[in-house]
Simulated scan of single mutants.
Amino acid sequence: MKSNSKALSAPYTIWMTVFIVLPMLLVGYFALTDRAGNFTLENLLSVGQYSNVFLRSIWLGALATLISLLLGYPLAYIISKMSVKRQSMMVMLVMLPMWMNFLLRTYAWMSLLEDNGLINAALAAVGLPRVHMINTAGAVVLGMVYNYIPYMILPLYSVLTKIDQNVIEAAQDLGANDRKVFLKVVLPMSMPGVISGVTMVFVPAVSTFIISKMLGGGGNLLIGDLIDMQFLGSAYNPNLGSAISLVLMVIILICMGIMNQFDDGENVGGGVMI
């Protein structure tokens, strides 16, 4: 039995080794060596000069995650209360933008937000002043929310649909109003979905680069842009780029560890006492 299990898991082990373990080892190697291959900590020490870029990336990523949660939770809750047929249709509509190329979706927002774009043209048509939206931090956050909010909605919807309606009705029978039912029953039971959604949005948001490059301009440099510059830009320096990537991985792991502290696994089967 054990030999069969090992045989079945062999392809996955090979896949993880080739596409996860080896790339991470290469990142660690380049981060801890210079161009001649000698061991050095200079690359990691040089990352400190980009602390403002790290802070900006974390701030914008966290803001996009919060907005996605505030918008995604009510929508996921509404979908979970619909009939099964309507749920399928709404989930398909949520996933529909993801069927389009990521780059094309971002280009579409450029057409909407630029100074002579569709939004400003509509404002001018009704006599309102034009608004500068492109190449701003707000445009970057908007692009993050638009592209990553499905990753917030889907895990929330998955958890909310599994909440037993009898539990909610029992809380109402015990005298809890709608606010208490939500705060004491629905929200605690949906925390695994919240944590999954926050993680799935924050990780790509904090490390994104194409959104900030296209919607933020040169004044909103993020960690992803910085790494991209080290590998593809004129200042080619894969050692420094690997060091920045290594620090980013550590930051993401710390954030995920903090988020996991809010999920003790006790809220999957039921809520807390009213």
Rank of each mutant, 00 (worst) to 15 (best):
S5R: 13
T13L: 13
T13W: 15
T13Y: 14
S46P: 02
V47K: 02
S51K: 15
F54H: 01
L60S: 00
L63H: 00
T65M: 09
I67V: 04
I67G: 00
L70F: 11
L71P: 00
G72E: 06
L75H: 11
A76D: 03
L96K: 04
L104S: 05
R105L: 02
Y107E: 06
Y107K: 11
M110T: 07
L112Q: 05
L112V: 08
A122W: 13
A125S: 12
V126D: 02
A137C: 09
A139G: 01
V140F: 03
G143C: 05
P150A: 05
I153V: 11
Y157E: 02
Y157K: 04
N166M: 13
N166S: 15
I168L: 09
E169K: 11
G175T: 07
R179C: 14
K180T: 10
V185Y: 06
S190E: 11
M191F: 12
P192F: 08
S196P: 01
V198S: 05
T199H: 04
P204G: 03
A205F: 14
T208S: 15
S212L: 14
L215Q: 03
L222E: 07
L226S: 02
L226I: 10
L226Y: 06
G233W: 15
I244M: 06
L246N: 07
V247D: 07
V247P: 00
I251C: 06
C255N: 13
C255S: 09
N260C: 10
Q261W: 13
